[in-house]
Nucleic acid binder design. Structure first.
Lengths: 136, 136
DNA sequence: ATGAATGCAAACTCTTTGCACATTG
DNA sequence: CAATGTGCAAAGAGTTTGCATTCAT
């Protein structure tokens, strides 16, 4: 079993922490710690990779960032509650539409809490054939 | 960038592959490759860990297994429901609930067709902390 | 026979950690 | 000045891969 990760909520303000938050904030969508580290270094911010990991984990803990995990690792995204959306992707040509609809959000929230779950997040993607590809 | 993993769909029947499928089938909920390997060895099935990894990846590819990933790694579960359903998974302990609800299905259908898409499918998973883990 | 699957161990990737040093409050 | 954060490099954990061997077909 693994212990709950809970490194104490940072109590000092360092430029590193602020740089990470800022870089994350400026990034659209999800990024991994490594990608963000690369981004920072490319912007001439000399910062340790471990620090980026620590900062991101911390931001996520504080609820300032969402996380998502896939084979490439943990991905972080700055939480702007407005931008939660889903994708409708064409199986054939890859065209993508962004879907935003409070209906699902509420549904997810409701269903989850009915099962006693808290701190909910969800992934939802739609796949189909877009108009053009449907015709073809 | 990472390539889409697609090791050719197994063409031979080995007892190892069958053992993995069977062990997975008998297991309730999600298991990791390592856990399953341990289970197999405890049942006096001498089998390589790599083989378990390969077999599971393959089962998932074939649609015989669902996968879910958290900090402890990739978790596999035998697909037993024919019906379309979704999962509500505990981020911490991996507990899983199956969700079936026509609401989302209809929503997906409606939204997609509004965008001109046809032949719709979708993936939807909810993540949160189950009652026990919320308490902890 | 013949090439795909296995097993083992080494290699990899992502992430965490120990510790000396720098910084913040 | 005291404690906390950083940086680095080493350690961990999980997963993948190279290659010789075994085995299904």
């Amino acid at each position: 079993m693994k212990e709950t990760r809970s490194s104490a909520p940072q109590r000092r303000n360092t430029w590193q922490r602020e740089a990470v938050r800022e870089a994350l904030r400026e990034h659209e969508g999800f990024v991994t710690a490594q990608e963000l580290h690369r981004i920072l270094e490319d912007a001439d911010q000399r910062i340790g990779l471990a620090t980026v990991y620590r900062s991101l984990a911390n931001l996520a803990e504080q609820g300032e960032a969402d996380t998502m995990r896939n084979a490439d690792g943990e991905h972080y995204r700055y939480c702007r509650t407005e931008d939660h959306h889903h994708h409708l992707v064409c199986r054939r040509c890859g065209a993508t539409e962004e879907i935003t609809d409070p209906v699902v959000e509420q549904w997810a929230e409701r269903v989850s809490s009915q099962h006693g779950y808290t701190d909910i997040s969800h992934t939802l993607d739609l796949f189909g054939l877009c108009r053009e590809c449907s015709a073809a």
